[in-house]
Every structure is written in structure tokens, then in C-alpha cells.
């Protein structure tokens, strides 16, 4: 996939010395990284490495204690999550966070919330501008439903769907916002091989056909090494390695983080 790496050459997201503490726990410490426009960027690391905290800082749930984060050269370190969504960053969650009582269609229409304008009075009246806007956005949502092969489920309540399908709907909701940076927190967790293959295909299609920059956290090394242009490895809140999948795989620090130190044996 490295042929798409850095297409356009500009940096989508700059992380500059970002750090986050929870009480005495240093969840993320002094991480600096660049996510290139149009690439698939993976963040990997053992449990508790600070990957999700990193994602939460990008999407605005946490604000970094030190350092800053720039999206398209715009400092978003202290911007709230709803404003960041409006800037063009969408994400999915490790534990599915769909609106369970609503249909697939409504979930995706909600994804377009930031792109819609209808105010209170127009909503009360509905007929006229509000209806025109609803129909216009419905058309786009239907394209995404079509793309994700959810056409027969559009009016099913999201909470009643199978796990793998819920993950797909959540991806759809994020896509509906037409983000320029898409954050995926373990999109393939808990899936069987077939579901994983489907999800990988959707992720790659989004990346290649729509040119969306994607940053993802994933534990399945096979998937990560196959689809990523760049991989960042974190351990104990720190970035220990970064590079192409091949570079990362050969890095002794990465092997140490995952398999344990070899020095350790000699001491013992």
C-alpha cells in the first residue's frame, strides 16, 4: 500500500510532544508524530500503552497536558469534541456506541448532523427548507448504505443487529460526516475472519476511493501490517517506534515491548 503513502505530501495531523496524565499515571508521554494526507496510519502497542488515550486526545475528549495537536495546521489541542467533529474528524469506538433505539438510517443521518443546518423554527415547520435538506442528505446517506451493503437493514433498529453489522453501521455513521480524517478504534476487534476481511475491504475502499486519511488502532498484526502505510508503536505511554510496517517489524524495541527483553534473562 506504500504507493499511496503521503500522496499529496502534506501532513494531515501533527502531534507535537503530546502528553496526558491521569493522577499519577502517565498515560501518554511526549509523543510526536505526523499523519500524512491520504495514508492509513496504524497505532499499535500492548494493552495500556496509551493508544486509546491518544485517539481521545485527537478527537477532543481529552486535552493534552503538554504539547499540542494540529489538524490541517489548525491547533485543536483545546477544542471540544463536537467542534472537532465539525472540523472534519470522525471516529468509531472500541465498544460500539450506536444509538441503539434508532434505525440504521437515523444513525447515519445523525452522522450528517454537522453538515446540516436546519434550525428550531424550520424543524417545527418542516415542509420547505427542512424537508429539502432532509431529502438531500438522505440521498448521500443512501449511497453510504449502498457502499456498506446495508440496504436491507436501513430501517432495522441498530441495537438489534449482529455485532459485526453494528461495527459496520458505526463506520457508516462516521463516514456520513464526510470526514477528512477518520479515526477507528479497533474496528476489527471481536470479529471472525470473514467479518474482518469485509471490514478491511471497506476501510481500504474509503481510503483509496474517497482519499480519506485513516488512523486506526488494531491488535490484529496481520491486518495492520497489510493495510498500513505507517505504523506507530506505543508502550507505557511512549512512542517507541515508527515507520513502514517492515521497518517496525524489524525494530528490536518493538520486539522487546511485545515479547519481553532479552537482557532480562542474562541478568537473571
Amino acid at each position: 500500500m506504500s504507493d499511496t503513502a503521503g500522496s499529496g505530501g502534506s501532513v494531515k495531523l501533527k502531534i507535537r510532544g503530546a502528553a496526558k496524565n491521569f493522577g499519577g499515571v502517565r498515560a501518554v508521554a511526549n509523543v510526536t508524530a505526523d499523519i500524512q494526507e491520504g495514508e492509513v496510519f496504524a497505532i499499535i502497542g500492548p494493552n495500556g500503552a496509551g493508544k486509546t488515550t491518544m485517539l481521545n486526545m485527537i478527537s477532543g475528549f481529552y486535552h493534552p497536558d503538554e504539547g499540542n495537536i494540529l489538524f490541517e495546521d489548525h491547533d485543536i489541542s483545546n477544542v471540544g469534541p463536537s467542534k472537532i467533529a465539525a472540523l472534519g474528524i470522525a471516529r468509531t469506538f472500541q465498544n460500539i456506541a450506536l444509538f441503539r433505539g434508532m434505525t440504521v438510517l437515523e444513525n447515519m443521518m445523525l452522522g450528517r448532523h454537522v453538515l446540516m443546518k436546519t434550525g428550531v423554527l424550520a424543524s417545527f415547520v418542516y415542509w420547505g427548507p427542512a424537508q429539502r435538506e432532509e431529502v438531500r442528505h438522505r440521498e448521500r446517506v443512501e449511497e453510504i448504505i449502498d457502499f456498506l451493503n446495508l440496504t436491507d437493514l436501513r430501517k432495522a433498529p441498530a441495537g438489534a443487529l449482529a455485532y459485526g453489522l453494528q461495527k459496520r453501521v458505526e463506520l457508516g455513521r462516521a463516514l456520513a460526516a464526510e470526514p477528512r480524517l477518520l479515526l477507528l478504534d479497533e474496528p476489527m476487534a471481536g470479529m471472525n475472519q470473514e467479518e474482518k476481511e469485509d471490514m478491511v475491504r471497506y476501510v481500504l475502499d474509503v481510503n483509496q476511493e474517497w482519499g480519506t486519511t485513516i488512523a486506526l488502532i488494531e491488535h490484529d498484526m496481520g491486518v495492520v501490517m497489510d493495510i498500513s502505510d505507517h505504523v506507530m508503536v506505543m508502550d507505557m505511554g511512549e512512542k517507541i517506534s515508527q515507520g513502514t510496517p517492515d521497518e517496525v517489524r524489524a525494530d528490536p524495541k518493538v520486539i522487546e515491548a511485545y515479547l519481553g527483553s532479552t537482557d532480562h534473562k542474562e541478568v537473571a
Binding site: A85, R100, G101, M102, L110, H113
Partner: peptide
């Protein structure tokens, strides 16, 4: 829809803007 989103999942509501 935004109201219902807040009722069902306020964190997810925030993240979609």
C-alpha cells in the same frame, strides 16, 4: 434526532458533532 442521540448515547452524540 439530536435530542434522541443525547438520550441514547451522550458521548457518541458529542463525537458526531
Amino acid at each position: 434526532r439530536a435530542f434522541v442521540a443525547i438520550r441514547d448515547q451522550d458521548i457518541a452524540a458529542e463525537i458526531i458533532g
